[in-house]
Each structure stands twice: as structure tokens, then as C-alpha cells.
Simulated scan of single mutants.
Amino acid sequence: MKLAITGTPGTGKTTAAQLLEPDVVHLNEVIRERGLYTETDDTRDSRVVDFDQTEAWLAEREPTIVESHLAHHFEAERVVVLRCHPEKLRRRLRERGESEASAEENAEAEALDVILVEALDRHADVYEIDTTDQDPSAVATEINRVLADERKPSAGNVDFTDYL
């Protein structure tokens, strides 16, 4: 079974994934290291991903867990969308050096459920986990519950529209 862990940048994907089984692909690192992008977006200080090359790379390896804010764009039997209140998310991003514009853009995307909606458009089994007030080990425990089929799909339970 392949699991995708996704969410807006700053929701805790990488931190939680580091506490899981060793077969976790941190897709952003792979994209950067293997050059699986077509260009860089200097305005956003990011790379424009080559989805076809990235999909081919994933198909060759068939990892169990893929972690990235892009993971929901690829094949997976289950998708975990990590969520975080936009105010806290914005603070986290600023603390790790993101620009004010980038932090605000991501906070608004989180309030608007952008990644959740994208995941639901492509996948049937989507699980939302609110990380706002949880430590990484509690988030990893919830992800393990998804892997063990101890949790039912849940989407639409988290509402951050108060931020808007």
C-alpha cells in the first residue's frame, strides 16, 4: 500500500514523516537532488516540478510512503493531509525564514483548503489530521493508524475559514 503525506508547507509533514518507518521518500529532496524540475520560480524561490519525470522516478521505486506538499499529485491508495491553523502556520514559516508574502500566501491556501480539495479531486481515501496543537509523535501515531487501517477516511472536518 502506498501512502501520500501532504499538506501546505509548514504543517509538519517532514517532521512527522521522520518518525515513521524507514521507507519514506521526502519528495522535495528527490526533486531537488535529481533535477526533476523544468525551471525555477525566482519570485517564489521554488522549482517548477516536472510531474512526468517525478512520476516515472516514483514508479521505478514504488516507495511505501511519499511525503511532500506535492505528494497528493501522484498515485497512492491513501492520502493524509496535514492541516494547521493559518496563524500558527504563518508563524512557523516566518520562523524558518520564509518571506512575509510566501507565509501569507501559504496561510491563505491553508484557510481555503487548497491541498485538501486537490487531494479529494484525485483520491478516494483522504484522511485529514489537524496538527495545530499536536506534537510530531502524536501526528506520527495518527499516520500509523491510517497505515494500519485503524482510522476511517475523514475530510472536511477541519475548518480554518475564520482566518479569512
Score class of each variant (00 low, 15 high):
residue 1 M to V: 08
residue 2 K to V: 10
residue 2 K to Q: 10
residue 3 L to H: 00
residue 5 I to Q: 01
residue 6 T to D: 06
residue 7 G to I: 09
residue 14 T to Y: 08
residue 15 T to N: 06
residue 17 A to Q: 04
residue 20 L to R: 07
residue 22 P to F: 07
residue 22 P to G: 13
residue 23 D to R: 06
residue 26 H to P: 01
residue 26 H to G: 03
residue 28 N to V: 09
residue 31 I to K: 04
residue 39 E to G: 09
residue 39 E to V: 07
residue 40 T to N: 10
residue 42 D to N: 12
residue 44 R to E: 03
residue 45 D to M: 12
residue 46 S to R: 14
residue 47 R to T: 10
residue 50 D to N: 14
residue 50 D to R: 10
residue 53 Q to L: 14
residue 54 T to C: 10
residue 54 T to A: 08
residue 54 T to P: 05
residue 55 E to N: 10
residue 59 A to C: 06
residue 61 R to E: 01
residue 62 E to D: 12
residue 65 I to P: 02
residue 65 I to S: 00
residue 69 H to Q: 11
residue 70 L to N: 10
residue 73 H to N: 12
residue 76 A to L: 09
residue 78 R to G: 02
residue 79 V to H: 09
residue 80 V to F: 00
residue 81 V to K: 11
residue 82 L to M: 05
residue 89 L to Y: 02
residue 89 L to N: 13
residue 89 L to S: 05
residue 91 R to S: 10
residue 91 R to V: 11
residue 92 R to T: 08
residue 94 R to L: 15
residue 99 S to N: 03
residue 101 A to Y: 05
residue 102 S to L: 12
residue 103 A to K: 05
residue 106 N to A: 09
residue 113 D to W: 02
residue 116 L to K: 14
residue 121 D to L: 14
residue 121 D to T: 13
residue 122 R to H: 08
residue 122 R to P: 02
residue 123 H to T: 03
residue 125 D to Q: 14
residue 126 V to A: 01
residue 128 E to V: 08
residue 128 E to M: 11
residue 128 E to I: 05
residue 132 T to E: 04
residue 132 T to W: 01
residue 136 P to K: 00
residue 137 S to R: 15
residue 137 S to H: 12
residue 139 V to K: 01
residue 145 R to H: 11
residue 145 R to Y: 03
residue 146 V to D: 05
residue 146 V to S: 02
residue 148 A to E: 13
residue 149 D to Y: 10
residue 152 K to Y: 03
residue 155 A to T: 11
residue 156 G to D: 06
residue 158 V to G: 06
residue 163 Y to K: 14
residue 163 Y to W: 14
residue 164 L to M: 13
